[in-house]
Design a protein around this nucleic acid. Structure first.
Length: 316
DNA sequence: AAATGCGTCAACCGCAGCCCT
DNA sequence: GAGGGCTGCGGTTGACGCATT
């Protein structure tokens, strides 16, 4: 399949966005929406490619973006979800196994109807799936946090090195690095100048958040402003990720397999015969396959008492 | 004060899937 | 069914800012 280059490099600007460009983009999207990203820069009079505009909007200019440091709850959610979603092979294996078990009778029906198995969508969409569960956070931001903070924290060897490095530095400096003020980077400041365009209250709040260590209450307030996120974070908090041993390796609990294998065929049929789609997914689930499969996976592995090593995941 | 090192994060790139014709 | 275009994703890069030497 031939594919046109992302954009004609000739004459298109790259690199950091200026406040003026931000203003233009925001104004255009507010008035016209973003039906076609590729055509948008032309319509808006921006010398950017559509991809760049989309990225800028999604990761930075969108009014519901929550800026500032991640709360502990958010970090725990990322860790937990990454453990689940990050292990593609395992996820594929489990999904496929469940597929065989629960829906073996309906797969032929599905194929007959011309539908494809949603395994590809299971294997992809990790950061975006995590971002979908953290309101106001973008996949790019989560990805950055993972690579800069959380991965190191979970990796014992890297953690040791990090700790040693921290010891070498002054404690106050080390603390500041991790939890200190939100950096008002140059571009951030520039964009803040363009804030009148971005009239969202959430944005104005987030851009004034300067202290994250004391944001437990602040974060709660912010969560409180958006109902779904409040409940999500609450559930995450309850199932707090506690020890590094638990997080070392994600393993499927034996009982999960035994339970799954011993599932009566009647139950299987119950699932299959529901007026859902061929996978037992509610036909109204318009949020994509990921949520459904995530749910299936979590329900399969996380609801018994002796799930040592198995993940305790927040309910979605 | 200047040089260096390191962490952070916005932005870019290429790929793959989906949709439309 | 094939082909082309668009969108969205994950991985990666490089500029920037701060701390340390």
């Amino acid at each position: 399949m031939g594919r046109a280059p992302c954009c004609e490099k000739m004459g298109l600007k790259r690199g950091p966005w200026t406040p003026e460009e931000d203003k233009i983009l925001v104004a255009h999207i507010h008035s016209h929406g973003h039906g076609n990203w590729r055509a948008l820069p032309k319509q808006a009079g921006l010398l950017r490619c559509g991809k760049s505009c989309r990225l800028r909007w999604i990761n930075y200019l969108r009014p519901d973006i929550k800026r500032g440091n991640f709360t502990d709850e958010e970090e725990q959610s990322i860790i937990q979800l990454h453990q689940l979603l990050g292990n593609r092979c395992l996820l594929l294996l489990v999904a496929f196994f469940l597929l065989l078990l629960n829906h073996i009778l309906t797969v032929p029906l599905l194929l007959k109807r011309g539908q494809s198995l949603p395994l590809a969508s299971i294997a992809k969409q990790r950061w975006s799936a995590i971002a979908a569960r953290l309101p106001g956070r973008t996949d790019n931001e989560i990805k950055n946090v993972w690579h800069t903070h959380l991965k190191k924290r979970l990796d014992p060897s890297a953690q040791e090195q990090h700790e040693e490095a921290k010891k070498r530095k002054k404690p106050a400096a080390a603390a500041r690095k991790r939890d200190g003020k939100v950096k008002m980077r140059k571009l951030d400041a520039l964009t803040a100048k363009a804030a009148p365009v971005l009239s969202s209250p959430e944005r104005s709040v987030s851009s004034t958040v300067t202290e994250s260590t004391s944001t437990a209450s602040a974060a709660a307030e912010q969560h409180g402003n958006s109902g779904s996120s409040a409940s999500a974070s609450a559930s995450v908090k309850e199932e707090c990720f506690t020890s590094s041993e638990e997080s070392e390796e994600f393993q499927i609990d034996e009982s999960f397999w035994s339970e799954t294998l011993s599932m009566p065929l009647d139950d299987i049929n119950d699932v299959c015969m529901e007026p859902h789609d061929a996978f037992g997914k509610p036909t109204g689930a318009a949020d994509g396959d990921m949520d459904y499969w995530l749910k299936v996976f979590m329900e399969g592995g996380g609801d018994d008492d002796n799930n040592n090593g198995a993940l305790d995941l927040p309910q979605i």
